[in-house]
Amino acid sequence: MMRLDRTELCLIAAAVVLAAGGLIAPGWLVFLLTMAFAKALVVQGVVMQMRAGLVSFGQGLFYCVGGYAVGMGGQFFGLTDLAVLLSAGVLAAMLLAMVLGLLLTRYRDIFFAMLSLAFSMILFGVLVKSPQLGSTDGFNVVSWTLFGWSPAKETAPMALLTVTLVAGLAVALLLHRYVQAGVGVLCEAVRENEVRVEYLGLSPRWLLYSNYVAAAAVSALGGGLTALAAGHIDPEMAYWTTSGEFVFIALLGGTGHVAAPFLAALVFAVVRTYAIEFVPHSWQMILGFTLLGVIVFLPKGLWSLFSRAKAKGAAAS
C-alpha cells in the first residue's frame, strides 16, 4: 500500500465532498462542474509544459483528438464503453504527440507556441475538409456505457461527474507525485536554465519530449470527457481560440499547485456563465478585465491567494 501524504488525502477529500455535493446540486451545476473539471484536465497539460517553460498555444490539438476519438468510436465503430473510448483518445493523442514531439521539442519560447498552434490549426483544417465527419458542424456523441451498465437519462450527468472527478483525482495524484519526483523537478530546472541541465549530463530535449507526450495524454482525457458531457464535437475544439482559453485558465490558476487548474477552471466557468447572463453584449470584456486583474494583482495566479496564506501561517507558527 502506497503511503499518501497530506496533500493527497486532502485532494481525495475534496473530490469526495464535490461528488457528494453533486448529489444535491441542481442539474445545470452538475453539468457546469463536469465541464469545468474536464477542461481543467486539458489545462493540466498546458501547466505541465509551463512548468518546463513552454507555452502551448495548440493544446486544443490533443483536446480535439480526445474528443474525436470518443465521438468516432461511438459513431463509426460501435464502441460505447466509456473506459474504452477514453483510452482510445489518450492512446491516439500519445501516438500523435510522439511524432510531433520529435519536431516540437527543438523549439522554445514563442516558436514553440506558434508551431504548436500551427499543428492544431492543420488538424482544424483537415476536419473542416471532412464532410464524412460533419465538417464544421461536427456530430453528436452516442450515449455511453460503463462495463455493460448503461445509465438512465436522469442519472447519466451525475455518473459522468463522478467519472470526471475520479479521473481528475487520479491525474492530480499522479501529477502531484510527478512534480515532486526527479522528472518534474528537472522540468523546472530546464525552464530556469537549460544549459546547466545539460552540464548535469541530462538531455533537456528528452525530458521535454516525455513531458510533452504525458501532457498530450492528460489533455486528451479532458477532451474525451468534454465530448461525453457535451454530447457533441466539432472542429472548433482545435481552433486556436480554444487553445488560448486553456492558456488563459492556466494563468488564472498559476503553476503553484496541482489543484490550481481545477480551481481556475471552476472560477472561469462561473465568471463566464454569469457574465453571459448579465452582460450578454460584452461578456468577453469582463473576461479580459478578470485576466488583467489577476495578472496585475496576483501574478502567480489565483493559487497565490492560498500560498500567501501559507506564508503567513508559516511565519505565525
Partner: peptide, 17 residues
Amino acid sequence: EILMVIITYALLLILED
C-alpha cells in the same frame, strides 16, 4: 515574455467588446 502575450490577449478581449 509569455506573460506579455497573455496581457495582450486580455487586451484583445477587451478591445473586441
